[in-house]
């Protein structure tokens, strides 16, 4: 990947087991990416915090991280506080950016994550949500290559922005692509594209009526936080069973106003134990609570102490 993204903060992690302890023969990073691995008592479990200097990313930042998880390693990836994406560095307003191709736009913030997981290994990607500030443009692409028998909990979530400052879905663009391969076969590609500057619909001349301008907020409301959770492999089956049990009990009667938290789960085709869970909540805190409860079963897999570091 290193030749793809220029001027990037690179990171590289290799995690393996050494007499029941997780060790990191490789744990390297360059500015503005920072990786920290606190010592954990839990056998076979390693924890790495992904951070950026200043706790945020500005327009034009490029981060790429490559992770290699070897046999039987249970790696927990966390962040410290939400990933804040600030607006474009040059102070150019998103609406007047001339290039239609934000991917090549030097002011777009990009994150790239590539993970391969060996059989018996597991990744628990449990970061805080991404929060894009007004006019910010953010792209992320995450690829996970699992061997048969590997496990993964992949959380990808984002919020509506700095609500304390009245920002509600006021960013320029949010793009997130997650792709999961199991044994070399693509089982899921989940791509979300949220464009703040929706073009007004035109009729190409001779327009008879003007449809009201619609904002991203119109499309996302009343929810302020959206999460996608991908679950794979033997180590997540306890969590999956519990969620299935909960889903069986849901019976939606016509409601008068929207529920505070909405969630649902689907199977991933061609991968018996694979699931995708989607959650939306009016408050980020409610979504966090939901996730923390839903994944509680991971305590048996990574230990209570490590689990308590996620969703703080």
């Amino acid at each position: 990947m290193s030749n793809i993204i220029q001027d990037a903060g690179h990171g590289k992690i290799t995690a393996q087991i050494h007499s029941d302890q997780v060790v990191f023969p490789v744990l390297a990073y360059t500015y503005p990416l920072k990786l920290l691995s606190p010592r954990m008592q839990q056998e076979r479990v390693g924890v790495v915090y992904m951070m950026t200097y200043g706790g945020g990313l500005v327009g034009g930042d490029r981060i790429s991280l490559t992770i290699n998880i070897e046999h039987d390693v249970r790696l927990v990836l966390l962040s410290q506080g939400s990933t804040k994406v600030f607006k474009t560095r040059l102070g150019t307003r998103a609406a007047i950016r001339s290039t239609p191709n934000t991917a090549n736009d030097p002011t777009t913030t990009m994150q790239r994550l590539d993970v391969s997981i060996a059989a018996g290994g597991a990744l628990f990607l449990l970061p805080d949500p991404v929060t894009c500030f007004r006019d910010a443009a953010y792209h992320q692409a995450q690829t996970f290559r699992l061997a048969h028998g590997a496990s993964a909990v992949l959380l990808d979530w984002y919020t509506s922005g700095r609500r304390a400052r009245g920002e509600e879905w006021a960013f320029a663009e949010y793009y997130s692509a997650n792709e999961v391969f199991v044994g070399g076969v693509r089982t899921a590609r989940d791509v979300v594209l949220l464009n703040g500057a929706l073009p007004p619909p035109g009729d190409g001349g001779g327009q008879l009526l003007l449809l009201p301008r619609r904002t991203l907020a119109d499309r996302m409301r009343p929810y302020a936080c959206y999460a996608t959770l991908l679950l794979y492999g033997p180590l997540v089956q306890g969590v999956v069973r519990e969620l299935e049990e909960r889903m069986r009990k849901i019976s939606v009667f016509r409601v008068g106003e929207p529920l505070d938290v909405l969630w649902s789960m689907s199977g991933v085709h061609g991968e018996a134990g694979g699931r995708v869970v989607r959650v939306a909540g009016k408050e980020t805190e409610e979504v966090k609570m939901w996730l923390c409860t839903a994944l509680r079963g991971l305590v048996d897999v990574i230990g209570a102490e490590v689990y308590s570091k996620a969703f703080v």
Binding site: I4, I5, P100, N101, T102, A103, N104, M110, Q111, R112, H139, Q140, A141, T143, E173, Y175, A177, E179, R189, V191, V192, L193
Partner: peptide
């Protein structure tokens, strides 16, 4: 995928 936001389905 990180460079394909403008070209791929979403």
């Amino acid at each position: 995928l990180e460079f394909e936001a403008e070209r791929l389905p979403a």
